[in-house]
Design a binder for these strands. Structure first.
Length: 432
RNA sequence: GUGAGAAUAGCUCAGUUGGAUAGAGCGCAGGAUUGUGGCUCCUGAGGCCGCGGGUUCGAAUCCCGUUUCUCACCCCA
């Protein structure tokens, strides 16, 4: 019985060229996180459902309709993580990391899951990498996190990204803003779209996100969150902007920037590309969340972090044809054996080369020399080694430089070391 | 969850008003060239025409259902 199945809706297989881009993104991020002194943390792929409903917010779309929630065999409600922050904070509290020197700076890389209608750049399983810095309210830390996000994309080779930033204040200033904002909207309520009318009672701030023309029109004269910030929040935001200026990081204040999780306070930001022609143009985003640690039963500790969509970043890298430097400048060697009879000899040679960490392969299906050289050419090998009747008889090997087409004869029993110097003489930039 | 479009070879796509043995380019494999690679030429393999049903003498083509993808909305990475 043949099984004819595809990957589930909204999931993909990543291989070939894509895996190189993906590793490039992840390797670059790991390197940079290390430079900024962040430590990696791996948390479970699923958590008790409560971890997400309480932190992200009961009223948010993610919790309402996008979570992969299931019961295990003992009837416990579990959920595949839709984002990384909640898990990291849970782990931070559970492992009592608040007793360590603060702030604790963590990063993570992994799959997230959201039950959504798939589109380009939006899948049901997708990868994120992110950082969380827990334990300081210093605006310098907001800036460090933004700086890190900015450096990551710079390091990856992007030049035309836009950093959007806003502050939604603490719960106090937000409360008085929401009060005035609702009072302002009330007379226009009839003109808003049905979604926004629902938002009016459930999550009024999200009205700012609406792309409906009529709603935008109403918003034109609306009060802005920024002018409602309390003294502390305003000073905090001003310092953040000031420090960004010091680092010469360009930003754009976006009054309508609102994010989809309830736990954010004060600074929020997003990094977007206008070169992505779909609606999914946000490559990364984050913000400060000063109440979340306490909500998870830890001490009242402020925190800030961001998350980056690996798949979207990969898409844009490919679209912009950004060259990725993949650390592949070691010479690659293709061993051509002209008859299966010579397999033992072939194994000896492979063993020697691999013990010396050369990337090498051989033709497991013996074909004609011309065909094999053609493949070595196409496969991007720097050297071929030819083993045929002549070589076996004299216990020699023939090394061929694919670029210069020069050939060298090496006596394998007495002079195998010669091959190492020969290979290191390669024209490629790196030397061993 | 709402609305629209698409699905033909490994990839990119032709396929007319329903009348074929379903095609091309690229890629893959073999040969021209018995142990020497970029070009050229020749040859070959590879298709439940997404899946299921219906209309019809006859369906890749028309109709219905379904799955997946794409786009917009919603939301987000």
């Amino acid at each position: 019985m043949v099984m004819n199945v595809n990957a589930p809706r909204g999931t993909i297989d990543i291989f070939g060229e894509d895996i190189k881009y993906r590793n490039f993104i992840i390797d670059t991020a790991r390197e940079l996180f290390s430079v900024f002194n962040y430590q990696e943390i791996v948390t479970p792929t699923f958590e008790y459902t409560e971890v997400f409903t309480r932190s992200i917010g009961e009223g948010t779309d993610i919790v309402q309709k996008e979570m992969y929630t299931f019961e295990d065999k003992k009837g416990r409600s579990l959920t595949l993580r839709p984002e990384g922050t909640a898990s990291v904070v849970r782990a931070f509290v559970e492992n009592k990391m608040f007793q360590e020197h603060l702030p604790v700076k963590l990063f993570y890389i992994g799959s997230m899951f959201r039950y959504e209608r798939p589109q380009k750049g939006r899948m049901r399983e997708f990868s994120q990498l992110g950082v969380e810095s827990i334990g300081t309210n210093n605006p310098m830390m907001d800036v460090e996190v933004i700086w890190l996000l900015n450096s990551l994309f710079k390091e990856l080779g992007f030049v035309d990204l836009v950093l959007l930033i806003n502050s939604i204040g603490c719960s106090n200033c937000r409360e008085s803003f929401v009060e005035d904002f609702k009072a302002f909207i009330l007379p226009h309520l009839e003109k808003l779209c049905p979604d926004c009318r629902k938002r009016y009672t459930q999550n009024p701030l999200r009205i700012f996100d609406c792309k409906n023309r009529h709603c935008r029109k109403v918003l034109e004269g609306s009060p802005r969150v920024l002018s409602y910030l309390c003294t502390d929040c305003r000073e905090h935001f001003e310092k953040v902007l000031g420090y960004l200026d010091v680092l010469k990081i360009k930003y754009r204040i976006d009054h309508s920037l609102v994010r989809g999780f309830d736990y954010y306070t004060q600074t929020i930001f997003e990094i977007v590309s206008y070169q992505i022609e779909s609606a999914q143009n946000a490559l990364g985003g984050g913000g400060r969340y000063n109440n979340l640690v306490e909500q998870f039963g830890g001490p009242s500790l402020p925190a800030v972090g961001f998350a980056v969509g690996i798949d979207r970043t990969l898409m844009l890298l490919k679209k912009l044809c950004i060259e990725v430097n993949l650390n592949e400048n070691r010479p690659r060697i293709y061993l051509i054996v002209l008859d299966e009879e010579y397999s033992s000899y072939c194994l000896e040679i492979l063993q020697y080369l691999r013990e010396h960490s050369y990337t090498c392969d051989t033709n497991y299906n013996a074909k004609k020399l011309g065909t094999e050289l053609k493949w070595a050419e196409k496969g991007g090998y720097d050297f071929s080694i030819i083993v045929g009747e002549d070589e076996v008889k004299t216990h020699n090997i023939t090394v061929k430089d694919m670029k210069t087409r020069n050939q060298y004869r090496i006596d394998w029993s007495t002079g195998k070391k010669e091959i190492l110097t020969l290979l290191s003489r390669d024209t490629s930039p790196s030397r061993r």
